[in-house]
Nucleic acid binder design. Structure first.
Lengths: 346, 346
DNA sequence: TGTTAGCACTCTAACATGGTGAGTGCTAAA
DNA sequence: TTTAGCACTCACCATGTTAGAGTGCTAACA
């Protein structure tokens, strides 16, 4: 069976209507609302074909039709109207990014919040990966005799605090010296660069009395930049879920809330797809995560120095407004890439 | 009318039953379940009295009785069984506090999470007040030419990062010198101590070329420690709300969620009462905040150096398990006060 | 005087019933 | 190929009915 122009028009009508009303839509309603010059009976025949093709489904015998995952897939792949982000939105996003490009970890939280506010969906973001970044500066700040705050600033302007308990109790002058040595030895390095030789070099360069302390600090540094455990993942606008009739059952909402608090789940979602900065869409059951099978994910990676660095995803019900989500997300990613590009270029 | 022993026993039965079942309870059920040697008819008479006294109410004519705010108030003030925190819980909380006493800001988040997990309610906490704390150490860490991270460590071990945009572009050596000057001049000071004279003193002590930068940093420092805007308030276990039948209506849940994201609302709640480290309970309509009139708040302040420093509150439906919430909260506050006491003493 | 059994009454929740409207599929005619 | 017409299905709503839980009142009892 071939998907001719008329079938497409009807499919679009069904999807657009369902996106805004969340109610199944019938042939008569289409005939009245979108006057496309054919009767409801003809539409009925076409709809029967669309159902046979798996693009729409009927919740029950005498109800209207609802788009299926496959229908949304067709819509997203082929029927998406091009839509530009509004001037206001663009200006707002750009300003936010420029204002906060010197604190990228904070910026990512703001972005999650802003996208959620603009779309009324939930937004998840991951901080830039540590394993591909280099250390721009580090500093030890005393807290008490036996612990310091390690402050790390990366080339992508992510600032990280870690309180490090020390094996011995170096004085302030010794901390200063350690900071100087560590800065000199580790600056500009990324995780792969920090080898056993580097560690020995550092041990040899700090004062005798605080080698144990330096070892403590170095072990935290390596653990932070080697594995991604230190990388934060944020979810913004989680409560928006409660506004969708899909989640009027508190139990369903609770399950999704629970899932959105699981870091591993968010990481899985943000790692799905090819990680490019193209917009990718995962519809309903296409998502690897169980709790998400009634939701869709619109995601894109952002880049720094030519490599994928982190991801942003918008989560909504499968009947979400894909055009809006994709438009805003693409605007955000474009701006971030530009701002981060200037950072690595300059 | 006098609240004799038998009335009290019946009131307790009603409250305890309602706390665990959330269903109105009738005279026959009480007679059967709690065999107190009197018939349902007698209980009926007593319940009629209790209603007249305003301690219980009937949702509708042929339903059982439900405790009123006044009933809970009576229960909380006079009838509360003494209950000790379990050994396991005590050990767990104590360990968590000891482990994180060198990063009190992080600790407060952990506490919110832990209390929510133990009680299944929502927990809100406020970080220690800045205006009563002194600066133990500060450090400037370069981010790019025109911005630095200001790291503040207070005597109560709260670590704060603030990115400060600078009016000029000091070099690394100049930043070091500024850090040294600022540390020397501001260490041990609290907000009231930082006067115009101190600021002038600092301006005179830093190198000519970075006076503007120093002014930028000082303005951030004073704004952070003077007003409480810098103080964080966290809510943990917000999603627990969805487990209570009181919030099976998504709309109600959504409104409360919304309120719990409003910083001002949380501050208002945490500032209610006398701010002592005694446990205080606000039941239903006793709360100043509208969205909380179906909820109760169990709160206590924690102390440092003999002064009130911040607060912790547990939020649940009015039929919450007050004994459990009060027991756990009092255990937490006791431990925090002890740990912070050692901090200020040592 | 306090307690209890008994009874009439009230109200909700649950279930059954029937009508309405939205929707479908099928068929025959244009 | 399109359309009008028709029979049919099903959710939804209003209505009616019943069962059950609960109450208040009264009269009898200890």
């Amino acid at each position: 069976m071939v998907l001719n122009k008329r079938k497409i028009k009807i499919l679009e009508a069904i999807i657009n209507d369902y996106i805004s009303t969340a109610e199944p839509i019938g042939s008569r309603t289409i005939a009245k609302k979108y006057n496309m010059g054919i009767s409801s009976a003809t539409i009925r025949n076409e709809m029967s074909d669309l159902e046979e093709m798996g693009l729409i489904v009927q919740p029950h015998a005498s109800a209207g039709r609802v788009p299926s995952d496959k229908g949304y897939r067709m819509y997203v792949d082929n029927l998406l109207p091009k839509h530009e982000i509004t001037q206001d939105e663009a200006a707002f996003l750009q300003q936010m990014i420029i204002n906060n490009i010197n604190q990228v970890d904070f910026l990512m939280k703001e972005i999650a919040r802003a996208i959620s506010a603009l779309t009324t969906y939930t937004t998840i973001v991951s901080e830039p990966k540590f394993c591909r970044t280099t250390i721009k500066h580090l500093q030890l700040v005393p807290v008490d005799e036996r612990s310091v705050v390690l402050v790390l600033v990366t080339d992508s302007n992510v600032v990280k605090n870690h309180v490090v308990p020390l094996a011995d109790a170096p004085g302030y002058a010794q901390l200063q010296q350690m900071t100087a040595v560590l800065n000199e030895k580790v600056k500009g390095m990324c995780s792969e660069d920090i080898s056993g030789a580097v560690l020995e070099d550092i041990a040899g360069s700090v004062e005798q009395g605080c080698r144990a302390a330096a070892a403590c600090v170095m072990s935290v540094i390596t653990s932070v930049i080697e594995n991604e455990d230190g990388r934060q993942v944020y979810a913004g606008g989680v409560k928006n879920i409660l506004t969708f009739p899909e989640f009027s059952d508190v139990d369903k909402a609770h399950r999704l809330f629970h899932a959105l608090e699981e870091r591993d789940m968010l990481i899985t979602l943000l790692n799905s797809g090819d990680g490019s900065d193209d917009i990718q869409v995962f519809i309903g059951a296409e998502n690897s995560v169980d709790e998400m099978k009634n939701c869709s994910l619109v995601k894109a990676g952002y880049r720094f120095g030519g490599r994928n660095y982190g991801s942003i995803g918008v989560i909504g019900p499968t009947r979400m407004n894909y055009v809006q989500a994709m438009t805003i997300l693409s605007g955000v990613v474009k701006n971030i890439n530009k701002a981060l590009g200037e950072l690595s270029g300059g």
